[in-house]
């Protein structure tokens, strides 16, 4: 493992769409695009209850996203803000499940609640509560012998 990056000042938005429609997710994503809000991370997938999704946006965009939700009947329900979060990104993962396993073991052992994680071509990003940032960073640094690079 070569390094870890911390991305802070983010908020997590969680949503659930009704089965077979996809309308809420579609409106949410279009709304973000129209208001110029970038997502640092997005994860969505089909479940028995419908399409569930979550994304991280900059805390400075929270007001714009809330305005979007309040101004759209489809988004008034079914889309919620969670607590402020940070992203901890480890690289490179080399498509090795052991890297994921060691990370989850370290975070689980330190009792860090996870809101999710996602791999990219070379990195794995974990979503943690902002209040747990120091503990989570220490757990991963200890596991891989790293120093965090603030972004």
């Amino acid at each position: 493992m070569e390094g870890m990056k911390v991305s802070g000042d983010l908020v997590l938005v969680e949503g659930v769409d009704l089965p077979a429609t996809g309308e809420r997710l579609s409106r949410f994503l279009s709304g973000l695009a129209q208001t110029g809000v970038n997502m640092s991370l997005f994860i969505g997938g089909k479940t028995q209850e419908g399409t569930q999704f979550e994304c991280c946006v900059a805390a400075s965009d929270e007001g714009r996203v809330k305005a979007l939700m309040h101004g759209n009947p489809e988004l008034k329900t079914g889309v919620e803000f969670a607590a402020p979060v940070d992203l901890l990104t480890l690289f490179p993962h080399r498509f090795d499940l052991k890297i994921l396993g060691l990370s989850l073991t370290a975070l689980g052992r330190a009792r860090i609640p996870l809101h999710g994680f996602c791999s990219s071509l070379s990195a794995i990003t974990f979503i943690t509560d902002h209040t747990d940032l120091e503990k989570a960073s220490a757990a991963l640094e200890g596991c891989f012998g790293l120093g965090a690079e603030p972004s």
């Binding site: 090795d96 499940l97 052991k98 999710g116 791999s119």
Partner: peptide, 20 residues
């Protein structure tokens, strides 16, 4: 995590992992 470590030790790789 421990289960994933065992898979990794067995040479199992992934194309994509994600969780919410």
């Amino acid at each position: 995590g421990q289960a994933c470590c065992r898979l990794g030790d067995s040479g199992v790789g992934f194309h994509l992992v994600f969780s919410r």
